[in-house]
């Protein structure tokens, strides 16, 4: 598989949100606005790329019986590193994303890619795979965040285009589920046509 394909397959064919159905929790919880979705996506991307690389490097010397805990410790370390960095340099986003930053550890996408790809491929390929899936995830989150923000706050990326309130339900729990459901239908319809 050529290098560019490794990255782009994470956008449509292996899109973690709409195809693989992984990482649902942060998808629903952090997409109250486009910026928040973007932030969460990029944070996960950071962990994905680094942990994929680290796990790819140690996969061969890790005995099979302990490989899951070892991978988890590696992923947890990068998440903790991310926590430090966000707390120091992007405190506002750190507070907004809150609990979901440490929860990247149990984001099935990260462990899933580690198992499915990083443990069997080279370091560079694993990095690119992490980049692709991470970008696909970021794209999905940003789109969902934008839709919820437009419908629920009447703004997009912080730029308000109506006065007063919009349909608040969309920035709250029910709206997340509904929007994701409908977006999934849209995604399926669009990708079916291409195939």
């Amino acid at each position: 598989m050529n290098k560019l394909k490794l990255i782009t397959k994470g956008f449509v064919k292996d899109n973690p949100t709409f195809v693989l159905l992984l990482g649902m929790c942060p998808t629903l919880a952090t997409t109250t606005s486009a910026v928040n979705g973007l932030g969460m996506g990029l944070a996960t991307l950071f962990v994905l790329v680094l942990s994929n690389m680290a796990i790819s490097a140690v996969a061969r010397i890790t005995p099979d019986k302990v490989h899951i805990p070892v991978y988890i410790v590696i992923i947890a370390s990068f998440v903790t590193l991310l926590q430090f960095m966000m707390q120091a340099y992007t405190p506002a986003m750190y507070e907004t994303l809150g609990l979901f930053i440490p929860l990247i550890v149990v984001n099935c996408i990260v462990l899933g890619r580690a198992e499915a790809f990083a443990s069997r491929n080279g370091v560079l390929d694993s990095a690119l795979d992490g980049l692709g899936v991470g970008l696909g995830f970021t794209l999905s989150l940003t789109v969902l965040g934008a839709v919820r923000e437009i419908l629920g706050s009447g703004s997009v990326f912080g730029w308000k285009f109506i006065t007063g309130d919009a349909m608040l339900a969309f920035v709250m729990a029910p709206g997340a589920f509904l929007c994701l459901g409908y977006l999934m239908v849209l995604f399926n319809k669009l990708t079916k046509k291409e195939k």
Binding site: A173, Y182, N188
Partner: peptide, 21 residues
């Protein structure tokens, strides 16, 4: 057809969440 499986499940959860609100 387009809703079968996960999408309709999500819409259902959405309505359930609305009820719990």
């Amino acid at each position: 057809k387009a809703f079968k499986g996960v999408p309709i499940a999500l819409v259902t959860v959405g309505i359930l969440a609305l009820a719990f609100m």
